[in-house]
Design a protein around this nucleic acid. Structure first.
Length: 157
DNA sequence: GCCAACGTTGGC
DNA sequence: GCCAACGTTGGC
């Protein structure tokens, strides 16, 4: 089993939006970055666990857990000119972009803010806390995953 | 294949 | 809203 972290802007699609979807499942469309696409296409497997991260908001941080409910398939939002994620270089015959489906697992008992995550030596290698990182999807090691979850029950300093 | 210009991400 | 960091584009 692999572990991941995926970013979304809560104003656009937050963890409560996922929780309220039918079957608490939604397709993760709109990723337009090759590195992130390749991970969804090649490495994400059914049942993999994923941290839901709120980005570009008042308090960026990890807010919950979801799991991969469907492995990579063409991101159809690229096909429609009226869609904000439209890409004329992608079509159903030759899809350029890939998405997965995610299913809500649970909301953390407290949000773990980015500024707290940055303070732990155990997470120094996590791309999220590294300077200038812009990846919206990244792998999380088992060690990092367990460590972050152990923070949930703790009060921050 | 280089690299300047440009657009986007995302923390602050 | 600002802007640093980064990815992509396209002229040469």
């Amino acid at each position: 089993m692999n572990y991941w972290l995926m970013k979304s802007e809560p104003d656009t699609f937050g963890i409560n939006d996922l929780c309220n979807r039918p079957n608490q499942t939604e397709h993760w469309d709109g990723v337009r970055n090759y590195q992130a696409r390749n991970m969804m296409r090649d490495d994400m497997k059914l049942g993999d666990q994923v941290f839901f991260y709120h980005s570009n908001c008042e308090e960026p941080g990890i807010v919950g857990i979801m799991e991969i409910a469907k492995e990579g398939y063409p991101d159809f939002s690229a096909f429609f000119p009226t869609d904000t994620h439209f890409d004329p270089k992608s079509d159903p015959e030759h899809p350029r972009w890939i998405m997965v489906d995610v299913k809500y697992v649970r909301t953390l008992s407290r949000e773990i803010p980015l500024k707290e995550l940055k303070g732990y030596e155990q997470l120094a290698e996590l791309p999220l806390v590294r300077r200038g990182n812009r990846l919206s999807i990244m792998p999380v090691s088992k060690e990092q995953w367990d460590f972050i979850l152990s923070l949930e029950a703790q009060r921050p300093d």
